[in-house]
């Protein structure tokens, strides 16, 4: 993630990396990156890169964790120690425990878990390089990993971050912007169904600003969804 800075983050309507307020960074997506997983994907937004992989549905052990009438989804969001400026000590911390939970909640509505009693769908997100918006990048990757695993889904999940810096509303915060924004909002959506599955917001906003940001996030999620779909089509059906 970025450090605190005294620099002006928006000069003449442009952000420090040259973007206009509503522009996302360069997006790269690919699937089937990890051969030992049932499904996997790699997604980059600028310098933020996430791998995601899916194992399962598979039998859940130990047995007492099994649910007789439904499967469960398990998520692990993790940052590599080298992904940030100051080395992150390995293993879960409070932040990653919370993010893993909200990511699980972002995907439970799209899966047919009741079709896999006593089973688990295990999903893993590894952030290998972090430059802001890591959780939403991880969600975009996991969505494609689930699709590439051939797991039936009601919709893909597309996610993006939006925020506010010196009275300008922006899309896809990088690390410096993340750390110095007045407010940032993470949104994950089922784009075709227009349903929000993750919503987190930090920092001060009026209700009107929040509504504007949510609309920006919705439009951006729809763009991300198109790239996800295109990537999956090219891989599994040939380019259309």
């Amino acid at each position: 993630m970025g450090k605190a800075t005294d620099k002006e983050l928006i000069v003449n309507g442009r952000r420090l990396d040259g973007r206009e307020p509503y522009h996302m960074r360069e997006i790269k997506m690919s699937v089937d990156e990890i051969s030992s997983a049932n499904g996997s994907a790699k997604v980059s937004f600028g310098k933020t890169t996430a791998y995601a992989s899916v194992h399962g549905p598979r039998s859940l052990f130990p047995k007492f964790l099994q649910e007789s009438d439904t499967g469960i989804l398990r998520c692990r969001y993790n940052m590599a120690p080298f992904s940030v400026d100051d080395r992150k000590s390995p293993g879960p911390d409070r932040r990653s425990v919370e993010i893993s939970k909200v990511i699980r909640r972002a995907f439970e509505p799209v899966l047919f878990l009741e079709d896999y009693p006593k089973s688990t769908v295990d999903s893993f997100i590894e952030i290998v390089e972090a430059d802001g918006s890591t959780r939403v990048t991880g969600i975009n990757a996991l969505s494609m990993a689930l699709a590439s695993a051939g797991i039936p889904m009601k919709d893909l999940v597309a996610a993006c971050s939006v925020g506010k810096i010196s009275d300008t509303l922006i899309v896809d915060l990088n690390g410096v912007e993340d750390n110095n924004s007045e407010s940032d909002v993470g949104v994950a959506m089922m784009p075709q169904k227009d349903i929000v599955t993750l919503l987190q917001m930090d920092g001060i906003l009026t209700k009107e600003e929040l509504v504007m940001l949510l609309n920006l996030a919705r439009e951006s999620c729809k763009k991300i969804y198109q790239i996800q779909k295109q990537t999956l089509m090219e891989k599994y059906r040939g380019a259309e």
Binding site: V102, R105, E108, P109, V185, M189, M190, K193, D194, I195, V196, T197, L198, L199, Q200, M201, D202, G203, I204, L205, T206, K207, L210, L214, R218
Partner: peptide, 17 residues
């Protein structure tokens, strides 16, 4: 009346509207 933090929880999604 300004908002300073939001967290969605629970296993279902919420319609945008």
């Amino acid at each position: 009346g300004k908002i300073c933090a939001i967290q969605k929880q629970g296993a279902s999604g919420i319609a945008f509207n």
